[in-house]
Amino acid sequence: MHTLRKMRLFDYLNYLFLIGFSCLMLYPLLYVFSISVSDGEAVWKQSVKLFPIGFNLDAYEAIARANAVVRAYRNSIVYTVLGTSFTLIVCLLAAYPLSEPRFRWRGPVSLILGLTLFFSAGLIPTYLTYQSYGLLNTIWVITLPVAFNFWFIILVRANISTIPRELKDAARVDGASDFRILLQIIVPLSKPILATIALFVAVAIWNDFFNPLLYLNNSEKFPLTIMLRRMLIRGATGEVVQGNYADTLQAKAFFRQVKMATVIVTLGPILLVYPFVQKYFVQGTLVGAIKG
């Protein structure tokens, strides 16, 4: 065991590499934060390289006053909460009958729904179909289709099958209905897997750019990701932030701070909960990997 504990040259290099790797992962995020809170002057003189220089929250104030950003933020929250709720409801409604021996169609139904893991119609046919439903430009097109994911149903079903049968049988003998068993026995005992799924779906919807780009063209409905593209990639920060700004270097630098502040508030919810929920994410990937 002695040799295993002793540090050698390789170990020092390895540790150095891993530390460098961590810095590479963190630096962009730190830099973005520093730009967003630094003094305006330090930003336009380009002296911010790592840590904030000075301190001011003007950029954050500007975002809070920018109706478009506030609206997009609200939309993102609504889409995320709603889409995640729908997903969990669908998972439970599907997984319970599909794990219940009394449901005689569970074989064929699993097989048919399972096909969706292998085939998808592709962008254009899906778009035309949703269009024919009149779903374009509605909140539903972002929150409903995402809920019908057989992969998550498999995870919940696998979890339900680990719950001892006796619990369900005892409840049934006592006269509990299926809905009551689902709500009072299955849901409390499935909390970890439901939390894992909720996290995955929530992050996916929060970060989704593709679906809003395809299905929404009314700026009232845009989520943050579409707003971020306008500001960061299309360079339209000036239109988004209200107020009169001269075409100066100072204004340009301020817009840059506004962009970075928008990135920070977008990442904010994820970064805040990340340390506490990380283990669910890791478990989730592993469950998925093993079952797959």
Binding site: P28, V263, L271
Partner: peptide, 14 residues
């Protein structure tokens, strides 16, 4: 793991 949670649109924007 952290960068995995950053939206693609944010990464490209940066």
């Amino acid at each position: 793991y952290l960068p995995h949670f950053v939206a693609v649109v944010v990464i490209v924007g940066l």
